[in-house]
């Protein structure tokens, strides 16, 4: 009996902790947005962080996109050939990438490549008292350190997701048309007939923007909130990747329900 009560008490404590953290994160987001004026008045800070978050994530995102697209085409062929519908390959590859895989996989890659780096950097600055030093110099570390990284993440991820989808479609094209020998005209034509720019492409972009906000907030919050020790920073970095992944997948489900519910495309 007691064991069961303890178990419930454990769940209660965990839930309370989780809700409290969510509250802190929300308050932190408000503080970051309030301090963002400085970031946009001083683009140099933002450009530096765009380089770290965006440019340095390019290689992994482009490579992954290309290979995901190629694998999609190979696997799709296996299925479509049974129904004699291999012309629909373009549709399959493009819709999978634009609606789901682009935003989601790019988001996951971004969280592990750039998000963890942001957390580690901010956490380390906290550990080595660099943030405290700024505060004592009457410089707001949220405006100077956190906000540029947050906005760089928010700007980078939608671009990275679009690049992922583009490279993926190109990879699918390479496999479907150049390797398997499906007619190129049918590949592009069917794709263009089936993919709607407003419905599919825009919704995919909206997804990637929502993910960008979520991952960037998690990354900067975990860094700023990290326990200022070596262990604390490493734990925070891990939390960034895990929480981001969970957040992306949960939000993706919710968004998909609202965006694509009960729709059949022509």
């Amino acid at each position: 009996m007691n064991a069961i009560l303890n178990w419930f008490a454990g769940i209660g404590v965990t839930t309370r902790g989780a809700i409290a953290r969510l509250g802190f994160a929300t308050r932190f987001l408000v503080a970051v947005v309030k301090a963002s004026g400085t970031t946009f008045l001083r683009p140099r800070l933002l450009i530096r962080e765009l380089y770290h978050a965006g440019v340095l994530s390019l290689v992994i995102v482009l490579m992954s996109g290309l290979f995901v697209g190629m694998v999609l085409a190979l696997q799709g062929y296996e299925t479509l050939v049974r129904f004699g519908a291999t012309e629909a390959m373009g549709v399959l590859v493009a819709l999978s990438l634009v609606r789901e895989l682009g935003p989601v996989v790019a988001g996951l890659l971004f969280a592990s490549r750039a998000g963890s780096a942001i957390t580690a950097e901010i956490g380390l600055m906290k550990t080595t008292e660099q943030l405290a030093a700024m505060e004592v110099m009457a410089v707001n570390p949220i405006a100077r350190v956190v906000a540029p990284r947050f906005w760089a993440g928010v700007i980078s991820l939608p671009f990275l997701a679009a690049l992922f989808s583009t490279l993926g479609i190109y990879g699918g094209y390479l496999v479907a048309v150049k390797l398997i020998g499906i007619d190129g005209g049918a590949f592009w034509g069917q794709m263009q007939a089936a993919v709607d720019w407003r419905y599919d492409v825009m919704n995919g972009v909206i997804k990637s923007i929502v993910f960008a906000f979520a991952v960037s907030l998690i990354a900067v919050f975990e860094g700023y909130d990290a326990t200022p020790t070596a262990e604390g920073v490493s734990a925070a970095t891990t939390r960034t990747v895990v929480t981001s992944a969970l957040a992306i997948l949960t939000i993706d489900f919710v968004l998909t329900v609202f965006m694509f519910r009960g729709s059949v495309n022509g």
Partner: peptide
Amino acid sequence: IGVAALFFLALKVGNL
């Protein structure tokens, strides 16, 4: 290239 990718998706794939 990010903007170019968005345009590619909208024009070439989404047939804007």
